[in-house]
């Protein structure tokens, strides 16, 4: 290949994000989206949750998880716009989708970093 190509690498991230979403999201949605807020399961003790979230390993794992899932969503949604709404401005759609994922990733990094600080 004489030209550097980005699409194959984005696809790899999409695939990784897809695997992680498939395996991690069900339990995360059930616990953090429904069970804890609605009290089906007692929400974790604050100090314990803070300690888990502040741990460096958690930081790395959550960062990887969130960023890859955002890239997965952006990539899939981009093609949904092409195929579903038949939007022809392909480059604009791509920039918007991946741009949003990048912004989300930066915000994720900032929040995770801040949460890991004052533990």
């Amino acid at each position: 290949m004489t030209r550097r190509r980005v699409e194959p690498l984005v696809w790899l991230m999409f695939s990784a994000g897809g695997v992680l979403a498939a395996v991690f999201l069900p339990i995360l949605v059930i616990l953090f989206g429904l069970a804890f807020p609605l009290g089906w399961v007692d929400p974790p003790d604050y100090q314990h949750l803070r300690a888990v979230i502040g741990h460096p390993v958690t930081f790395v794992v959550l960062l990887g998880l969130f960023v890859l899932m955002l890239v997965h969503s952006a990539h899939r949604f981009r093609y949904t716009l092409y195929d579903g709404l038949q939007i022809k401005h392909k480059r604009t759609v791509a920039v918007l989708c991946y741009g949003t994922a990048i912004v989300g990733s930066v915000a994720t990094l900032a929040v995770l970093w801040a949460a890991a600080q004052a533990v």
């Binding site: 969130f66 899932m69 955002l70």
Partner: peptide
């Protein structure tokens, strides 16, 4: 994909 992004 929309809901994956929402939940992140």
């Amino acid at each position: 994909s929309i809901f994956v992004a929402w939940f992140v």
